[in-house]
Computed example of a mutant assay.
Amino acid sequence: MAKIALACTILPDSPPARLIEWSRAAEDAGFSGVFMTEANNDSLACALALGLHTKRIKLGTAITNIYLRHPNLLANEAAAVQEFTGGRFILGLGTGHRESNSALGIEMGIPLTRMRETVKTLRAALEGGKTGPRVSAKLPLYLAGVSRPMVKLAGEIGDGVIFNFFPPARVKEALGELSEGAQIGGRDVKQIEAALFATAFISDDLEAARRPARKLLSRYGALKFYGNMMAHSGFEREIAAIRAAGRDGDAAVKAVSNELIDATLLVGSEARVRERLHDLCAPGIGTAIVFTNPVNEDRNAAVMRTIRALKQG
């Protein structure tokens, strides 16, 4: 069975004090880690804060956008989080969405090349004792992998990979790509962890849970890399309809099928979510990073429900 980690982010209904409460509750419930997303917040600063208020649980980012910081600054930030938390940090790296980066005036160039260069710089600084503070233990670097080339790159140079919205069939395929990358890098694929970011909508009312799930997938299906991945995974019709809808949000939402929802998200009752999580992780996922969106209740109640439902040990 995969290890379970909690995912958090900063939102109006998720202030810093609440994130600390959730992290402590997750730690008490036997979760393996708590990961910070990065959307209008600083993932590393938040991970550091959560680490200072917990004792055992791993701290991670899922993900930190490599375009928002110079690699030398990122190396020093990551080293600080690692040392202040007693060596419990995992730095998850991603390229963000081209749409969001472009809105910030960021020219991405070739993301695969930029990721390779960033990891090279980070490793040289972290492992060469060039950061302040120096790290006293290895700091794992995980790569967010959606496209095949990025998954292979994670196998070649990363300590782990983070998938998102991957159906089980895509997970199996991606694990093969991870192995190919490991062979290119002359590495043992068993030493590279595959993690899955899984978004949950928990409710005994399945249709009520599917409504916000449908809206979420209508947005992500419109994005280039996620849409391409879902289309390749057997949902060509849905993605084509989402893209054809353009700015018609209602039409995009209607294009999301129940099959797409069930293949990519955790939706339904607590028992159904546990079953789906097992199915999603069965192909070979080491850690499931679960992010909860509320269904007809406030976010605090929804997150605490998730922690209780997925309690470990």
Rank of each mutant, 00 (worst) to 15 (best):
S43N: 06
L59V: 03
G33R: 05
Y67V: 09
T61P: 03
R56S: 09
F31K: 09
L44Q: 12
G30Q: 06
T54E: 06
E38W: 08
I63S: 09
A47Y: 01
D42F: 05
L48C: 13
M36G: 04
F31Q: 09
H53R: 13
T61K: 02
I66L: 14
M36K: 04
I63D: 02
A49T: 07
T61E: 02
R69M: 10
A29N: 08
L48W: 01
I57D: 01
M36D: 02
L59S: 06
R56W: 00
L52R: 10
I57L: 10
R69Q: 11
F35T: 05
R56T: 05
A45P: 04
K55A: 12
A47S: 15
A45C: 11
L68V: 08
G30N: 08
L68F: 11
G51I: 01
T64G: 08
T64I: 11
K58I: 02
D42L: 06
A45V: 14
Y67K: 12
A47F: 03
D28M: 08
G30M: 05
T37I: 13
F31I: 08
A62N: 08
I63A: 11
N65I: 14
A49H: 06
A29Y: 05
G51W: 01
A47R: 04
I66S: 06
Y67L: 11
I57H: 02
G51M: 02
A29I: 05
A49N: 05
A47L: 04
E38G: 11
N40W: 14
S32M: 07
R69K: 14
A45I: 11
C46F: 01
L48G: 12
G60R: 00
A47N: 07
Y67H: 10
C46I: 12
G30F: 03
M36P: 04
L59T: 04
I66V: 15
N41W: 10
T54A: 10
F35W: 15
E38K: 11
S32V: 07
G33P: 07
N41R: 15
N65H: 05
C46R: 03
L44T: 13
D28L: 11
G30K: 06
A62K: 00
I63V: 15
F31G: 08
A29R: 07
